[in-house]
Design a binder for these strands. Structure first.
Lengths: 214, 214
DNA sequence: CCAAAACTACCCCAAATGAGGTAGTTTGCG
DNA sequence: CGCAAACTACCTCATTTGGGGTAGTTTTGG
């Protein structure tokens, strides 16, 4: 790290943003962009091939999204530092990203100088988080019952199925006809899934669910 | 237009993207970025002050969003060419943007060379649309009764406000406390907005609304 | 094989919801 | 100014929702 510059790989499906980021990084001595990818699949291959010091990974991508890419990279044994870059400010995905092995979570609307600084810190091995993100993380840790995406795994097949129908706006009666069971039974499943998710009404469940699948 | 370069103003709350775009534009002779704004309010002032040949306006911004900014600019008599720039690919906002006086609608994940070309064409007075967008526009025109976001315009301020709270999963009672009105009154607004939107329950309303803002 | 979990269906009941209605005040517009 | 729309608040009433319970059948996993 003393002789050659740190190698960085950019993964983002917006060419413009890659351009801006690359130019920004080029201003800094000791940093070098050695590869750019516009999608997760390419990134997986290149990451193993090049083993860069740092991978800057967009969260919101077409096709395989950033979280999925992150997960697969770690599964494949990629040991590069990986920093997520995203637009959304108050994102629950931060928890998922960190638990899946991200070394940082930065926002695209950061001040460029601050961003450069954070990138350097990330390469030094530090965990870097945007201001707005630390709060989200803090509250998430404070309230471990936060309904993260993994909560879906706690549901039975029937409950998940019914949750999806709720997320389409259906009433218990309609769901009952759809699944060919009594509406009393639907109510039981709804009751259970609400309890498991820590939610207080089908409206909350619908909103939560719709937000889950982007 | 023959002697001096065309003046361009960038409006986007992502510094990185502005940087990338600016650098891209600087590569082209005859184009010059004369101003950058990170929000709609600034953009309104600068647009009147500088009267640029072209304004490139981000659709998704914090605070005043791109559509609102566009509308206000036209209301203020800004005659610059205005091209919307956005991330989302199949956006219903395109119809609103065009009817509100936008001269183009481009996507951030376009090929940079293509983007430059489109910018030049916009300055020449042509309407520029991304590939993916022309389809959306075509179907929208083919189906003029399409339930576009304009349905929201039929709602009163209070109704829109309450709809947004429903879309956060709130109950009538909670909404009442939030807005400091009686829950009976909230029920009236909910009743009205459901009727106007042609929906049958607050769950449908919540789902519809959440899907509206991506 | 047997226990645990899931799925089904019903019971009761309090609370929330949505569709009617009347009615007073405030706001905006011609 | 005067009217229409919006906002407010209340009324009734049928329906839906969600929490609690019991209980029978089927599936699953050790």
């Amino acid at each position: 790290m003393s002789d050659s510059p740190a190698s960085i790989m950019l993964v983002d499906d917006h060419p413009l943003l890659r351009k801006g980021l690359k130019q920004l990084i080029s201003l800094e001595d000791g940093l070098e962009v050695i590869a750019e990818c516009s999608n997760g699949a390419d990134a997986l291959v290149k990451a193993e091939e090049l083993d860069p010091d740092l991978i800057i990974l967009d969260l919101n991508m077409q096709g395989m999204d950033g979280l999925e890419t992150l997960k697969r990279m770690r599964d494949n044994g990629v040991t590069s530092r990986i920093v997520m870059l995203t637009v959304s400010d108050a994102d629950e995905d931060v928890v998922t990203a960190i638990t899946n092995g991200a070394d940082g979570y930065l926002l695209k609307d950061m001040d460029p100088e601050m961003l450069l600084e954070q990138i350097s810190r990330a390469i030094e091995g530090k965990m870097v988080l945007s201001e707005a993100i630390t709060e989200v993380l803090a509250t998430a840790l404070r309230r471990p019952s936060a309904p993260t995406k993994s909560k879906l795994d706690g549901l039975t097949n029937r409950e998940r199925e019914i949750l999806e129908l709720i997320a389409k706006g259906m009433s218990n009666k309609v769901i009952a006809r759809e699944l060919d069971i009594s509406d009393g039974t639907v109510k039981v499943h709804v009751k259970h899934l609400l309890k498991k998710l820590g939610l207080r009404s089908r409206v909350e469940a619908a909103v939560w669910m719709v937000n889950q699948d982007q």
